[in-house]
């Protein structure tokens, strides 16, 4: 067996896979959050829908998105493999459980948190990704008056829409796009879905508070001078800012 193959079939190597895919997903979250902040713009989704088009049609980003899908699948798959392996390492469980006496709750329940997140990702993609890619969202035309800079938005009937288009005519700039923004507005009218999103973001927070810094541990990175930064990022960026940022979106639309 080659050295690499040996490495990846070891328990350490499997954790390395978890670590690398996990960290990649963390970086994605930053990009995703920053992009989605455009939902808070009061422009009837003009910027957001343009951004959605860009993210789905720009070559390099498409490649990254496939990496992303793969990471989600590999992360979940390896979690399953490791969980089964770990169960096998203790075939007879203890009668008495220590609870929180020696380990934090989230660190012991990453599987449950991860499962919540997987269900969330499936729901999330079905609601938006699937509908966006399968023409199940409304269409919209934005008209920008070049002189005044005034923008108006008009819903487009499905039969008139061919594809995303930007063109100028008679001093007016037209943008025709799939209206993912509308779909967002629509989806977050559902209180159950909003509640589920908020719950999932709580799970995300717990998952990342443990997961982010643990990923560095699995990589073997625990330099005394830099680990405080990792801990800070793990708790405040990935455990607080990102989940709150994401949770704010369904709440914003629900209460808007």
């Amino acid at each position: 067996m080659s050295s690499f193959k040996e490495a990846f079939s070891s328990t350490l190597g499997k954790k390395l896979v978890m670590s690398l895919t996990g960290l990649f997903l963390c970086t994605f979250l930053i990009v995703h959050l920053i992009g989605n902040l455009q939902l808070f713009k009061n422009d009837e989704g003009f910027a957001f829908n343009q951004y959605a088009y860009f993210m789905t049609h720009f070559g390099p980003i498409k490649i990254v998105s496939y990496l992303l899908y793969a990471s989600i699948i590999i992360h979940a798959l390896y979690a399953l493999i490791l969980t089964l392996h770990n169960k096998k390492a203790r075939p007879i469980p203890y009668d008495q459980k220590p609870g929180n006496k020696n380990a934090a709750w989230n660190s012991r329940n990453m599987g449950i948190l991860g499962t919540v997140l997987l269900v969330f990702i499936a729901t999330h993609m079905a609601n938006f990704w699937w509908k966006f890619h399968n023409d199940q969202v409304p269409y919209i035309q934005y008209e920008t008056n070049i002189e005044t800079g005034q923008i108006s938005a008009i819903e487009m009937p499905a039969e008139e829409f061919t594809d995303y288009k930007e063109f100028s005519q008679d001093g007016v700039e037209y943008v025709q796009a799939r209206d993912l923004y509308k779909q967002v507005e629509f989806a977050f009218e559902n209180p159950i879905l909003v509640a589920f999103y908020v719950l999932a973001m709580v799970a995300l927070s717990f998952h990342l508070i443990h997961g982010f810094k643990s990923a560095f541990q699995s990589l073997g990175f625990d330099n005394k001078k830099w680990i405080p930064l990792v801990k800070f990022l793990g708790i405040y960026v990935f455990g607080v800012i990102i989940p709150i940022g994401f949770a704010a979106m369904p709440l914003y639309f629900f209460f808007k």
């Binding site: 328990t11 490791l82 770990n86 096998k88 020696n102 380990a103 660190s107 541990q217 699995s218």
Partner: peptide, 22 residues
């Protein structure tokens, strides 16, 4: 040593830190 550890059938680390605490 890692190879032998795996061969013995021990589990993987999920960084719960229970080992350190105990």
């Amino acid at each position: 040593m890692v190879e032998q550890m795996d061969a013995e059938g021990f589990g993987a680390c999920t960084v719960t830190k229970a080992c350190e605490a105990e």
